[in-house]
Every structure is written in structure tokens, then in C-alpha cells.
Design a protein around this nucleic acid. Structure first.
Lengths: 348, 348
DNA sequence: CTGAAAGCGCTAACAC
DNA sequence: GTGTTAGCGCTTTCAG
């Protein structure tokens, strides 16, 4: 079916080697007469010869392709914009270096090593690598370099893995400081049901908790659905908290929606702040105050490191932590202090 | 470096064939003694043998991988959410069928055929395939099936290509009808600078134009930047249009932002409607009335058809057009009729 | 300057 | 039941 080097060689009346050298040879190795070269090129063109990357990979052992492990990739649109930015960051760096990006389907934890070591990828970026220890032996067996992006390195992480992540703890602290300065005294941290075990979520929660303790702020945790339907009940119960700290952008924006529906004004009645400041936070109403991870840079850096490893460099350091910053927008302000202000009527 | 079938065979004291059959053989062909099987499996496990997908591909000629051509993939986050949904649709269908997804870097128009015919992909989905005729010969030469997703089929499209797209024309008509019913008489279609040649953009423009003509509505076109900075000047000039029809969701939402900034109320002062209703449109304020393409279904269908083609089915039909619907939200209403209502003061 | 030949790791007839 | 063999298409010594 496909036209091969052999076909071209025969048609041109030369050897396969000659064709290979002329068509794919780099620089010096091409010691073939100009006339022959011309014939070869013309024949290749005429026959519409296209080289087989598969055969070449088998031979050379490289693919110029990087794999991306991203659980729930097919739900990208339902998640925060944050992940789209991450994908952009990875893709940009890859494409700049003429690499392809392969998205892997969900892999069973039990056969991670074979899936990543099948020779089709020169390296792998693993997003939000879960902190499950049964994965580590599998990853250690993997025959290509792996970098974990956007997952804090847990205690006993494999030391042949590179981690690129953000300082969730510092980010949470920024939020708490911001709220404290505004005069808030009671903070409710909103966790999302089903995400309680996510490394990011737990890190943010513990960071917020600690910071509140240090600052002497009251701190509680609620676990809500992604749509934050629980908001209404919470509000109706007349909570003492004056600020909601959502574990991520998505939930924060849902909270904003619920506020609007129930007539709760933000930041008048309650301040709302989230993690992961993205362009999307500029479009909510009110615009959402949020912690910003330099995700494009993080993704770019992770990719950069991976490419270096592919070329044989030993990564140093193995843990790359990016600091967070706080993008103050319009969803936070000073609370209506201790005065007893009548709360807006709840309408359902 | 890597452990191969040969290594396992030697270690187990059997032939390569035996190992291949036991480890990868399907059903009947595995006519190997149970005892031998056991030995082979144990040896493979002990040696940590992982099959080479590359070698297998070279041999079998298939890869279980589909390529995605998506210009500007690295700018996904800057575009409408629509494309993220599309990606989700493709990925879901692919993963359901145990295919991998490879995102290709930008390809030169001149070497599309080699890039797509390098044997690493069983088929290709091409998003927003430009209507440039110099691409067609290249695509025709491609050795794997290609389906164009989200690009209307132009006049002289290659007939070995499958197109899956939406009825832009019908969608634009829905908008015009909606506006007409609300009583609008003058519509401004907002095109985005740099996108004037996009197949989708042109189709929507012409659809809107025609529908307005048929309905007797006034119709004009403006080409604005993505951020719609031109809005302020336009408004200041005291336009006669009472409705803005943006070519896509993104621009529409920017227009909403400009309205807020300049104190123009939507839909009170002006109605705004866009193309591509996505969950994002529920988060704007006011919520954006928009034309909905069933993009998840479209992407799934395109992928489905491609997989069928990969398995040898001849596609029928070659043009799959999905109807659009209109998601009426809060950004459209009846205009303040002909009464001379004082416009809000423009503050800059 | 050019070509022969040896694999890369795997599958699939086809023997025995 | 099990092994031999012939490639898939390419790169790369190594000879001439």
C-alpha cells in the first residue's frame, strides 16, 4: 500500500541506502552525487513517498512524542479553566520543540508501567498524580522519564520523579491574610464533594486551617457539591462566617451564582474567594478574587524539564515549587462588622 | 535496554513465538500447554517485559491512535469554551474505544500529506479545516482517513473527505427570528478582526444577512477586536441598532463587559446575542442568549465516523450537518421601541 | 561516492 | 503443542 524507501530505490535504480541518505540524511553523511540526488528526489516526489515514522522509531528508539496522563480528560470543559491553561502551557512548549502530544486514556493503576513504556512516547507528563503509594513501583518501572505536574510531592514520593507544583500552602495563607486585613473573623472553607482526597484540595485546606489558626481566625470546613446547592441551606441557618474560601475557581463561581439566586450580595453580605485565578475570574460577577498559580509557566517548565531529561540531562532540582500570588478582584471586602444587619430574605 | 520477547523466550527456554502467543495471542491461536504458559507468564513478569507498541505497529500497520489537527491548540484557553467541549467530545469517543489521541503541532500546508501519513495514526480529525484549495491535493494524498470537524464543506471540497459541521445558516436565522419577534429593527453583526475568513464566521455572517433581508430588518457589519474595544465609540456615536449579533461567544461576552464598563444596560439599552451557547454563557452577566451547536454530539459523531472508516467502512453520507438551536437567556429583550429614551451618559 | 547487510521487536504463516 | 522463518520500513556500520 504505502510507498517505501525500497520502492523509490527500485524506481530510481539506486540502493535503499542512497535514498535514505539523500531523503533523510543529515549533513555530512550525504555523500551522494548531485545528479543521483536529483533523480532520487524526483522519484520520491513522483511516487509520493512519505517516510514511516513507525519504522524509524523502531530503529532509532525515539518518537518525538510526549504522553500526557490526565485523568478525566474528556471532562475538561466541566472543570476549571485552570486545566485548559495547563494544557496550553504544555502544548506550546512541546510544539515549539517539534514534539507531538499524545493524550492517554485512563490507565489502570496496575498497568501503568506497560502503558507508559510501550515505546511510543519519549517521556510522560502526569497531571495531578494521585498520592497513592501503589502507583510508585509502577512509575519506577516505567522506562521513560516522567514528570508530575500540578501535584504536590507527598512524603514518600519516588526520587526518580520530578514534581512541578505550586505552593498551595502559601497561596492559602495569602487568602487568609487578605481576609484578616479586611476584618473577617470567621472563615468557611468550601471543599468539593469527591475531591476531598485531591492533593491540591487537601494542601489548600490544611494551609488555610493553619493560617487561620495562626491569625486567630475562626475556621470551619464544609463539603459541598460542585454546584454548591448547599449554599442556600447554609445561608438560611444564619452562619457566623463572613467569608467563603472555595477550594477552586469552579466552585467559587458556582457559589457566586447561588448568591445571586438567593439574593445574597457579594461582597456585601459575604466575601467569596477561590483558588486558581484565571481569565475566567474576570468574567464572573462580581469578578472573583482568587489565588493565582503561574500555571502557564509551571506547565512550560515541567515540559522543559521533561525534554531535558529525554535528552539525557539529570534533572536538578527534582522538586520545583512555584509561588502563588493573590489577584484581588471584586468579590471580597470588609464584612458588615458585628452590627446586627438584617440579612436579606431568603427566597426559594 | 528494554526487555523484549526474545529475552523472555530465552529466559523461559521457549521460542519467541510461544511467548508472543501466550502473552498477546487472542483466543484460539493460543495452543500452548498450560504449564508452559505459566512459565512464560512468570518469566515475563519477573523480567518486567513490556511489549513494544512501535514494533507491533510496524508489523500490523495499525496504531489505535487518532491524530487531531487543531491550529493554535496552544491558545485553547484564549478561545471560546466551545472548542474545549469539542475536544471533550472527541476524547470521550476515542477513549471509549481504547484509542489514543495525538495532537499535532501546526503543519505546513505544503507537507500535510507526509505529516498525516507517517504511520503513527490510523486516522485524523481536522478541526476548522480552512477552505483553502491548496490543501485539498495534500489531503487527498493522505493515506489515512480524514474527517473535517466543525468546518462547513466549501464548494469544491474533496469528495473523499467527510465533513461534520453545523447549520450556521439556520442558526443565524434563529437569532434573527428571535430578534424580529422581540421587535428589533436594526441589527449589527459583530465580526472579529482576524477571523473574517474563518468558514464559520463567513457562514454566520451571510446567514444573518440573508435572514435579515428576508425579514426586512436593517443589517450592518462591524469588525471589532476580540476585546470589542470599539464598542465604546460605536455606542457614543448613537447607533440606530438595538441588537448586537456577535459571531461567537467570546466576543459576545467581551461586549457584555464593555457594556458594563460604559454603563450600557443589557438587554435594556441593547440586546446582545452570540454564537455557541456553552455552559459559560450561564456565567456571564447577564446570562448570554446564544445559538447552540450540539458540539459534543458533533464531535462524538465525527469521531465515530472516523473510527468506522478506520475499520474499513465507507462513510455515508459524507456531509453531516447538525441543526442549531437557540438558548434564550437574559441578554435579549424587546428594544425600547422608537420612543426617544435618553441614552446613558458615556463615561470614559 | 555507493551499496550490502544486519538488525530494531513483533506477528503470522507454515512447518514439524 | 511448539518452533522456524520471513518480513514490516528504516538507519547505520562497514566494504568496496
Amino acid at each position: 500500500m504505502a510507498v517505501t524507501l525500497k520502492d523509490v530505490a527500485e524506481a530510481a535504480g539506486v540502493s535503499i541506502t542512497a535514498v535514505s541518505k539523500v531523503l533523510h540524511g543529515s549533513g555530512k553523511s550525504v555523500r551522494i552525487g548531485l545528479e543521483t540526488q536529483k533523480v532520487i528526489r524526483e522519484t520520491a516526489e513522483r511516487l509520493q513517498y512519505y517516510p514511516s515514522a513507525v519504522a524509524r522509531s523502531l530503529r532509532t528508539g525515539t518518537t518525538r512524542t510526549v504522553g500526557l496522563v490526565f485523568e478525566n480528560f474528556g471532562e475538561l470543559s466541566a472543570g476549571p479553566m485552570y486545566y485548559v491553561l495547563m494544557l496550553d502551557g504544555v502544548a506550546r512548549e512541546l510544539f515549539r520543540n517539534h514534539y507531538r502530544l499524545t493524550i492517554l486514556p485512563e490507565i489502570e493503576h496496575s498497568d501503568v508501567a506497560p502503558a507508559l513504556s510501550d515505546g511510543r512516547m519519549d517521556g510522560v507528563i502526569w497531571c495531578k498524580l494521585p498520592a497513592e503509594t501503589d502507583l510508585y513501583p509502577q512509575i519506577r518501572r516505567t522506562r521513560v522519564p516522567v514528570v508530575a505536574l500540578n501535584a504536590p510531592a507527598p512524603e514518600n514520593h519516588p526520587d526518580d520523579l520530578v514534581y512541578v507544583f505550586c505552593d498551595n500552602d502559601g497561596g492559602a495563607r495569602l487568602v487568609v491574610e487578605h481576609l484578616a486585613e479586611l476584618g473577617h473573623a470567621q472563615v468557611l472553607f468550601v471543599m468539593e464533594r469527591g475531591e476531598e482526597e485531591t492533593p491540591d484540595a487537601t494542601a489548600r485546606l490544611s494551609g488555610a486551617k493553619r493560617a487561620c489558626a495562626e491569625r486567630g481566625l475562626g475556621f470551619e470546613v464544609a463539603t459541598w457539591s460542585r454546584e454548591a446547592w448547599e449554599f442556600a441551606d447554609w445561608w438560611r441557618a444564619g452562619p457566623t462566617h463572613t467569608a467563603l474560601f472555595a477550594w477552586n475557581e469552579r466552585v467559587a463561581s458556582e457559589i457566586l451564582k447561588r448568591c445571586r439566586e438567593t439574593g445574597v450580595s457579594v461582597p456585601g453580605d459575604v466575601s467569596v474567594v477561590g483558588f486558581d485565578s484565571t481569565p475566567y475570574c474576570d468574567t464572573t460577577s462580581p469578578r472573583l478574587t482568587a489565588v493565582k498559580q503561574p500555571i502557564l509557566e509551571m506547565a512550560g517548565q515541567a515540559t522543559r524539564v521533561l525534554l531535558d531529561m529525554i535528552e539525557g540531562t539529570t534533572p536538578d532540582p527534582r522538586l520545583v515549587v512555584f509561588p502563588c500570588s493573590l489577584d484581588v478582584r471584586d468579590s471580597t471586602s470588609s464584612p458588615r462588622s458585628a452590627e446586627r444587619v438584617p440579612r436579606p430574605v431568603f427566597s426559594k
